[in-house]
Design a protein around this nucleic acid. Structure first.
Length: 200
DNA sequence: CGCCCGATGTGCT
DNA sequence: GCACATCGGGCGT
């Protein structure tokens, strides 16, 4: 295993620690046609059965089972009839929590991304959770895969150094009718774009 | 830039 | 039935 791949111990911590810690890390996807990668710039934490915005609040079902498993595995779900979203499972086995990766800054594989995102302006290639999965060809076949090896052609490595001051904290996006206090939890983490552009 | 809306399938009530 | 951790096009500001 490459020493730069994030180890399971990175993920096996509280989701509220892992979500901001993922900012600046490198998401890599080895496709049959070449490598695609990008720097993670936006994440959100979904924290246990008590969190009514977390899919796992309904309990352990076929859909949410991965979140109840050990840390460092991918939770990929289908939504709105056409979109895939990519999460990483965190924390102890049995406690359902995951980080939604909401945006990345493309680094490698521009030709492949351009093909996957035909007709879309470069600035909009990967600035949303379902946009980045389409750009990287992430779908149901990645649900449950181990992110701490290269075996499933999808993993996360060390990336750029981030300063605490460059992390913007906000409430989570797109929660619709989720009740308080969950609606207003400051569990959305984003890199100030000026910081990572300088760090590349 | 912002708001509005249609697309489109699955999971849970 | 209906809500959904969304997206992109269209149109007004």
């Amino acid at each position: 295993m490459s020493p730069s791949i994030l180890p399971r111990s990175f993920y096996n911590r509280d989701v509220l620690i892992v979500a901001p810690a993922l900012l600046g890390k490198r998401l890599l996807r080895q496709t049959p046609n070449g490598m695609i990668s990008g720097i993670i710039t936006e994440t959100e934490a979904y924290n246990g059965m008590q969190d009514l915005a977390c899919h796992a609040h309904v309990g352990k079902t076929k859909r949410t089972a991965v979140m109840f498993g050990p840390a460092g595995f991918a939770y990929v779900y289908f939504t709105y009839g056409m979109h895939w979203c990519f999460n990483v499972v965190t924390g102890e086995e049995g406690y359902p929590a995951a980080v939604l990766v909401r945006a990345i800054y493309p680094q490698e594989g521009f030709d492949l991304i351009s093909a996957h995102r035909a007709g879309i302006k470069k600035i909009r290639w990967t600035d949303g959770p379902a946009k980045l999965t389409k750009a990287l060809s992430i779908d149901k076949f990645h649900n449950g895969i181990d992110l701490t090896t290269r075996d499933a052609n999808l993993w996360i490595e060390e990336g750029i150094k981030i300063k605490e001051d460059d992390i913007l904290v906000n409430t989570r996006v797109g929660l619709g009718k989720t009740p308080e206090p969950w609606l207003s939890k400051p569990w959305h983490f984003e890199l100030d774009s000026r910081s990572f552009l300088g760090g590349l």
